[in-house]
């Protein structure tokens, strides 16, 4: 046989051997390892919800505790893409929070608003499943009716 021919068959042999080496590893995982992926969201395990899958610090949808908010608007100013809208109005003597909307479809979950909030009124929840049919549903209105603005000083006395 010519040199060419010898090399041809050598190449075939080499290709088979090197593929077999890789296959050995694949086979090892196929036989030994339990499944690494889990079927989401149908088979999360008993009693587990999607929110149990993520860690403590997970940055999901924003949530608001209206009783803590002092209406300082710092979160609104810190947000780089203006997805928080807050309105504070004076009704009589009291100041009221009349609007607190967070547009979760724009939010990039950066956490700057949570960081600047002096009272911890706005925080992250673990919710991340935001799929919906209308993008307007993602603009979450946290206040249904006006709430009087929390006064940090009065609160301190209580404690």
């Amino acid at each position: 046989m010519t040199n060419e021919g010898v090399r041809y068959f050598k190449n075939i042999r080499e290709a088979i051997l090197t593929t077999a080496k890789g296959m050995k590893i694949t086979l090892k995982y196929w036989v030994k390892e339990p499944a690494i992926t889990i079927e989401y969201p149908d088979r999360l395990g008993k009693g587990r919800t999607a929110e149990d899958l993520v860690s403590e610090r997970y940055r999901g949808f924003l949530k608001l505790d209206p009783s803590k908010c002092i209406g300082c608007l710092q979160c609104m100013r810190a947000c780089p893409i203006d997805c928080i809208l807050i309105k504070v109005e004076k009704i009589g003597e009291e100041r009221y929070l009349t609007r607190f909307d967070v547009d979760q479809s724009k939010c990039m979950y950066c956490g700057l608003c949570v960081e600047v909030c002096p009272t911890g009124a706005i925080t992250f929840s673990k919710r991340f499943e935001g799929a919906c049919y209308d993008i307007g549903e993602l603009c979450i209105k946290h206040l249904q009716e006006p709430v009087s603005v929390a006064r940090p000083k009065a609160k301190k006395k209580e404690e």
Binding site: T18, T19, G22, I25
Partner: peptide, 8 residues
């Protein structure tokens, strides 16, 4: 072994 040293 799986990839980097694969002759192909």
């Amino acid at each position: 072994e799986l990839a980097s040293f694969n002759t192909i």
